[in-house]
Each structure stands twice: as C-alpha cells, then as structure tokens.
C-alpha cells in the first residue's frame, strides 16, 4: 500500500509543470553545439533562439564538427552542404554568424579537450555572451562522442573564460576575461535518468514556425524521401493511410512529416508544462555555482 502511495506521489511529482524561464537581461548569446543540426532538432533549441533574437539579442552559432559523415554524400560534399544549410538555418532564426571549428565528425573522442576548450574560450571572450545554449555534459547514455566532448569543453569554457590566468595570451590581444552568466543546456530527455530539465521556455506559434523552417533547411540530413516511403509502407501494412500525404511526392511528404513532428514535440512540451508551446532546458543561473551564497545574494543584491 505504501509502495502504491509512493508510486502515485512520484507520478504526480513527475507530472508537475516546470517553472517558466524568463529571458535573462542581456544582449548577446552563443549557441555551442557539436553538429550543424543540433540546435534545430526535435530536442533542440530553435524556439529559444528565435525568442532571444526577438528579445533583441545578437546570436552566433559555434559548430564544432565538420559534419562530414552526416548526409547522403561523400565526406567533402557533406561538409560543404551542411555548412551552407547551417548558414541558411541560422539566417532563418535571425542569428548573426557561424563559426565552424572543423573537428572531424564522429571522431571527437580523441580531440584534445584543452584545444577545443581554448577555441571556445577565445570566442566567448570575443563575443562576451550573456547566454550560452549548450549541450548538457551530465546527460547519460549519449552514444555520440562529439556530444560528450563538446558538452564538456563548453562546460569548462563558460567559467574559465572569466579567469585572467587562463590563456593570458588572449589578454595580449585586447580580449578581457568574461564569465558567461546564464546557460541553457539541452540533451535527449528520453535517454534514461540523465538529463532532466528544470525550466520550460514558453514559445509562440511564430517561434515554432521559425524553428520548423530552420529545421527544414537541413535538407541534406532530414526529410529523406525514403522516410516518407517507409511511413506509407508501414501505414499500408496496417491497412491505414494518411490523407494529408496523399497528393504529396515522397520528398514533400517527408517535409510534412518532419514539420508535423516538430510542431507535435513543441506542443507536447507545452502541454506538459501548462503552456501551448514550449522547449525544456536545464538552466544554470549566474550564481548557481555558489550554492552557499545563492540565497544571500538573492536577498541582498541591490541596484546601484
């Protein structure tokens, strides 16, 4: 009986909506991700990017890998196509620019952590972002080595960029130390106990539409006609069909299915959190690294 009560309590707790995240005060953000499409995927952050841009932020995308293996072509072609499609996607979202670091796709386990981190620190000091949108380094069961490596390099870079004795050669260039005060972290929420969001970001239908459009820009890796063919075959095998797809080519149907999925996931995250559309993140605020001081600072900091 006690077990049942505990289970029921756990179910209620799991269903509790997440606190709604406010857009932090600021001017600039960086999206630091392993791959060209990580920011726009179903578990991505395209909605928050659109929302930050609408709030007046300038944003840049740091893409760590060259994505040479992601797509239907050979390595050099994929690299170039994915670069072009990334540029298109960030333009749709309203971001200012893209840095491709060019590390070898899916081979980032042996990438030297400190070298990658140094590149990120340099760009943090150049742009002095108020917000970083990164990959959660504490996600479990992430089988992608690039995700793990970039997440960790980013987690270290966001605070070490604020220390003068870290890469003092940057100071010689006229760059000043800069600690990133706000982080929104993403990872798959369907990979076991690992990543667990602590905030929901409310989105409008327009944010979701831009996210979908940016997502669709990655045509080299999404909206494969073969995916639509597979869906039609599986429906037919069950004696079902989707009338909305009837008059569409396989390519058009694939785009429609992807867009439906993107809208569905944004609505699902919204419904779970008492909103129409949402994305969910693990948010780390400016003083969360000082657990003994967060309460004191909240109660005692005043305007100048």
């Amino acid at each position: 009986m006690i077990g049942l009560i505990l289970l029921a309590a756990a179910a209620i707790a799991a269903a509790a909506p997440l606190p709604k995240a406010a857009i932090p005060e600021g001017k600039r953000f960086l999206v630091i991700q392993p791959h060209h499409d990580d920011h726009t995927t179903d578990y991505g952050m395209g909605g928050l990017i659109a929302k930050l841009v609408d709030a007046g932020y300038d944003g840049w995308f740091i893409r760590a890998s060259n994505d040479e293996k992601d797509g239907a072509w050979g390595y050099p072609h994929n690299d170039m196509i994915n670069q072009r499609e990334s540029e298109a996607a960030i333009a749709i979202l309203g971001m200012k620019g893209l840095y491709s670091l060019g590390w070898r796709n899916d081979y980032m386990d042996p990438t030297p952590l400190l070298e990658l981190r140094a590149q990120i620190i340099l760009l943090i000091r150049k742009h002095r972002p108020d917000v970083v949108l990164g990959h959660d380094p504490w996600g479990h069961y992430d089988r992608n080595p690039d995700h793990r490596k970039v997440a960790r390099a980013c987690a270290e870079a966001v605070w070490m960029a604020g220390l003068r004795n870290v890469h003092p050669e940057h100071i010689e260039l006229g760059l000043e130390p800069w600690r990133v005060p706000h982080q929104f972290l993403k990872a798959r929420v369907d990979y076991g106990r690992g990543h667990e969001a602590n905030v929901a970001v409310e989105l409008t239908q327009a944010h979701v539409a831009r996210k979908m459009k940016a997502y669709s820009a990655h045509r080299n890796v999404y909206a494969h006609p073969s995916m639509a063919r597979s869906v039609r075959q599986q429906l037919a095998a069950r004696g079902l069909k989707a009338p909305e797809l009837d008059r569409k080519t396989d390519e058009e149907a694939a785009v429609a299915i992807e867009e439906w999925h993107m809208d569905w996931i944004s609505r699902k995250r919204g419904t779970e959190n008492g909103l129409r559309y949402a994305e969910i993140f693990y948010y780390l605020g400016e003083f969360d690294h000082l657990p003994g001081l967060t309460g004191y600072l909240r109660d005692n900091v005043v305007k100048r």
């Binding site: 000082l290 005043v302 100048r304």
Partner: peptide, 30 residues
C-alpha cells in the same frame, strides 16, 4: 559581475579582509 549589470552587494562595496571573511562565513553557513 554585479557592477557590470548595474547592481551591488553592500557587503562588497569595499573588498578587504573583513568583508571577504564575512562573505566566507555566510557561504559556509549557507
């Protein structure tokens, strides 16, 4: 960080041994 965002913590208006020691105590108690 507070200065760069137009805020202040009165305790740290002057950063010296006394104010740092007080901050350390607050942190440890927290």
């Amino acid at each position: 960080r507070l200065e760069s965002t137009g805020r202040r913590l009165p305790l740290l208006d002057t950063v010296n041994e006394e104010s740092v020691n007080k901050l350390v105590e607050i942190e440890l108690r927290g």
